[in-house]
Amino acid sequence: MRILYPFLAILAVSLIAYLGGKVTGLQYLFGVVLPYLAFAVFIVGFVNRVLYWAKSPVPFRIPTTCGQGKSLDWINQDRLDCPNNKLEVIGRMLLEVFAFRSLFRNTKAEVHDGPKLVYGSSKWLWLFAILFHYSFLIVVIRHLRLFTEPVPSFVALTEFFDGILQIGAPTMYQTDVILLAAVAFLFLRRILSRHVKYISLAADYFPLFLIFAIALSGVLMRFYFRVDVIAIKQLTVGIATLSPVLPAGIHPIFFVHVLLVCILLVYFPFSKLMHMGGVFLSPTRNMSNNSRSVRHINPWNDPSIKPHSYAAYEDEFRDVMKEAGIPVEKE
C-alpha cells in the first residue's frame, strides 16, 4: 500500500492532465492558473516553514561531534568534524550543502558468522544522491530558457555542456539520463534493501514517483511527442512576464508535465523535501562545539529569578529540614 497508493495517485493525476489537456478551458487551468497558485504556495509555504523553525529556541550546543574537539595545544583538533568557531562551522556547512558530507560517511552494518558485527563504508547512496541533486539543479537552470527572453548566457552555457555529447537530434542531455537513473536507484534501494524498506513510508515513495514522472514526461515531450517548443515558450514567457497567453496546438503531454510540477511545488513545503531549507537549519551541523570555552545563557531565563545557591537554600529551610530528619551541612 505504501508503494501502490502513491504510484496510483501519480498515474491518476497524469491521466487527468492528459485528458484535460485536450480541452481548451482546462488547458488554461492547468497551464496558467495552477502554475501561479502552485508557485505562490511554494514560496509562501517555504518561507513560512523556515520562519516556523526559526521560532524554535536551540538553547544548548548540540552539534554532532565526529572528531577530536579543541583541547590542549598539543592535541590535534578535527576542525571540520568538531568545529570550535564560526569559520570552521562555515567550512563544515559548505561541505555539507555542496558535497553531502554526512551521506559520504554513511556506513553499512553487517552481521557475519561468529556472530560478528562489521561496519563497512557504503558510498552508493552518496553517489546517487549527489548525481540526482546536481542533475536536478542543472535541469532547473536549463528550464530558464523557457522563462527568459533573451536567454541569459549562463543558461545557454549550461545547455551546451549538458548536451556536449551531441547524441541524436534534438541533442540528448546527460542530466536527463542521470536524473532518471538516479531516481530509479533511490527507488530500488528502498524496495531491495530490507532495512530501508521497513522504514519507508508513502511519503518516501511519493516524491520519488513524482520526480520520476516529471522527468519522464519531460523526456517524452522532447524526444517522442515532439511538442511545439515555440508555442510552449510563448506560454511560459507569458507567465514569467505576468501577461499569460494560451497559444493553440500545445500537446496534452505538456499539461501532464506542468500539472506534476505544480503538485511538486505545492507538496514541497509540507514534506520531507523541505530538507532543501532545513539543511541550513540543522543544529547538529551549524553549531560550534564551544560549550567548554564560552558560557551559554538560556535566552528565555527570567532575569527576576536570581541564582539560589545550596547554602542559601539550607539557610532558608534549615529548621524544616532538621525537623524532617534531612541531613544538613551546617548545624
Binding site: 518561507v47 523556515v50 521560532k55 527568459t148 505576468l242 541550513f280
Partner: peptide
C-alpha cells in the same frame, strides 16, 4: 524568532533566486 540576522537574509536570497525569471524579463 532566533538567528533572524542569518535566516532573514537567507530567505531573501532564496526568494530572489526563485523570482529570477520574473524580474529578469522586466524591460525586455
Amino acid at each position: 524568532m532566533y538567528d533572524a540576522g542569518k535566516i532573514i537574509p537567507g530567505l531573501i536570497v532564496f526568494v530572489g533566486l526563485m523570482l529570477f525569471a520574473i524580474y529578469y524579463n522586466v524591460g525586455n
